[in-house]
């Protein structure tokens, strides 16, 4: 049985006419001579506003996003953090809950460490500032992180978190999905493996309908068939 999901989103390309009503212009569109056109190659989602959901592209952070970042460098007072975006992000030493010296920074997070961050500021020139999520820095010491295109994140999460719940339910793993397309999976090795497979499949088939059912079936088969 299929859940009530909105299917039949049409694929559009840049320059496609979407509407004659400029008030309907949403994300991924532009207005020219009072008409709404698509800015992106993606799926047109026609509701009270028309927006175009891109099929690919680079992650651009917005304030409040929760992301998984990797330390790429340590400077005098900042950790430089790669967040799977064209722009490097910074976390200042003062964002760390406790007052620390510059020399202690590498003890807390070394180059190559992964952690969950919150985007606290993005300015016009795309200077990005991060802070530990919920005031407590969580460096990921176990489990694994996989990367998917950020455009597929809503699909990995599913409607009201249904897809993530499904994975957590069927497999004995903890999953955290960062807005930037990095996904942390923590659990037993075999389950982690399967979760990665499932997520890769979700990414590949993100634009199709009835995905939740197919993933359910896939997990059932994999669990009882191979193992």
């Amino acid at each position: 049985m299929r859940k009530k999901e909105k299917v039949d989103k049409t694929i559009v390309i840049p320059g496609d006419l979407l509407s004659d009503d400029p008030a309907k212009a949403g994300e991924g569109t532009y207005i020219e001579n009072g008409k709404v056109y698509s800015l992106m190659y993606g799926l047109a989602d026609d509701r009270e506003r028309i927006r175009v959901i891109p099929l690919s592209g680079k992650y651009l952070p917005t304030i409040g996003d929760i992301v998984i970042g990797m330390v790429s460098d340590i400077s005098f007072s900042n950790w430089k953090i790669n967040i799977n975006s064209p722009y490097e992000a910074l976390m200042h030493i003062s964002e760390y809950p406790r007052r620390i010296e510059s020399s202690e920074m590498a003890k807390i997070m070394r180059v190559g460490d992964l952690a969950i961050f919150k985007v606290v500021d993005v300015d016009q020139s795309m200077k990005i500032e991060l802070a530990p999520r919920e005031g407590q820095l969580r460096v990921l010491r176990s489990g694994r992180v996989v990367e998917v295109s950020y455009t597929k994140v809503p699909r990995v999460i599913g409607r009201a978190g249904s897809m993530v719940s499904l994975l957590k339910d069927k497999l004995d793993v903890n999953i955290f999905v960062g807005k930037n397309g990095r996904i942390w999976i923590n659990g037993k090795a075999a389950d982690e493996e399967l979760a990665v497979k499932a997520i890769k499949r979700i990414e590949q088939e993100a634009h199709t309908s009835g995905l939740t059912d197919r993933i359910t079936k896939f997990l059932e088969e994999e669990k009882h068939g191979v193992f």
Partner: peptide
């Protein structure tokens, strides 16, 4: 360019 998800006014 379209495949890369680059925003464009047209092809």
């Amino acid at each position: 360019l379209a495949d890369a998800g680059v925003p464009m006014r047209g092809l």
